[in-house]
């Protein structure tokens, strides 16, 4: 059946598109003389080399380890602080100028200070990711508190909830969808930061792999292979966070009511 066949084809559209691009890539590389980029076949061989050495798994784990800790530390400090400060407007007025000053500083600008404080190693990278995640999460938590509809707060007051129960049963669920959305975006940011941090502040991880492959012998096939792996892992992290947004008690926050 032709219609069915076309529908089937539609599902594979992204795959077909990518395959076409890769073919085009190979053709262009053949036509253009000199070192523009390694071809797809070279990259594929590079990936095989990486896998055979077993180094790649170690590097992936190292990068994920740093992202996880940096992100979680930021999450457990920035969210409670942001919620508290956002709830007490005076606290926000005091803190906001400082936050607005620190926020536009790229986390990468902290690299010298990170090395000064923590030396070259995991702690430095974790610190940089922490800095990169802390401010976006803090600001989201602060604005999420402001945006809680007054009626939820009033219902909480009316039902006589003690403060701890109020936080747990009204405040937290009311801000959860926004925090999850912000966490997804922030985790993406953390994955950007870790690669850059690893190029300077540590001697392992995917960022280190890329810079090392270039420095130690212009192995651009490994550079591109590393980039592709970084992209795939970033995509998987994003998908995992998206799954959270489909949880039923959060879903109300994402639909227009």
């Amino acid at each position: 059946m032709p219609v069915r066949f076309l529908k089937r084809l539609g599902q594979f559209r992204p795959v077909i598109f990518i395959a076409t691009l890769i073919a085009l890539w190979q053709v262009v590389i053949r036509q253009v003389p000199g070192q523009l980029l390694p071809g797809p076949l070279q990259v594929l061989r590079g990936m095989r080399d990486l896998l055979q050495h077993g180094l790649i798994l170690k590097y992936i784990v190292a990068s994920l380890f740093r992202v996880t800790w940096g992100f979680l530390l930021a999450l457990i400090t920035a969210v409670p602080l942001g919620l508290t400060v956002g709830w007490y407007r005076r606290g926000e007025m005091a803190l906001n100028p400082l936050v607005q000053l620190l926020r536009p500083i790229s986390p990468l600008a902290w690299i010298p200070i990170a090395i000064l404080w923590f030396g070259v190693g995991d702690l430095s990278a974790i610190f940089l990711i922490f800095v990169g995640c802390f401010f976006p999460l803090l600001l989201t938590a602060m604005s999420a508190v402001h945006n809680i509809p007054a009626v939820y707060v009033n219902v909480g007051r009316n039902f006589g909830l003690p403060p701890a129960a109020f936080v747990l049963r009204v405040l937290y669920p009311a801000v959860a969808p926004r925090l999850i959305l912000a966490s997804r975006i922030t985790l993406g940011l953390a994955w950007l930061v870790v690669v850059a941090a690893e190029m300077i502040a540590v001697n392992s991880g995917l960022g280190f792999l890329i810079i090392d492959a270039r420095n130690a012998g212009n192995r651009y096939d490994l550079v591109v292979a590393g980039m592709i792996i970084i992209g795939i892992i970033g995509l998987l992290l994003d998908q995992a966070m998206r799954a959270l947004e489909r949880v039923k008690s959060f879903r109300w926050g994402y639909s227009e009511e």
Partner: peptide, 13 residues
Amino acid sequence: IMVFQDHGVFPWL
């Protein structure tokens, strides 16, 4: 207890 005009129920429950 007050019954509000709108959005009074908790959407997460």
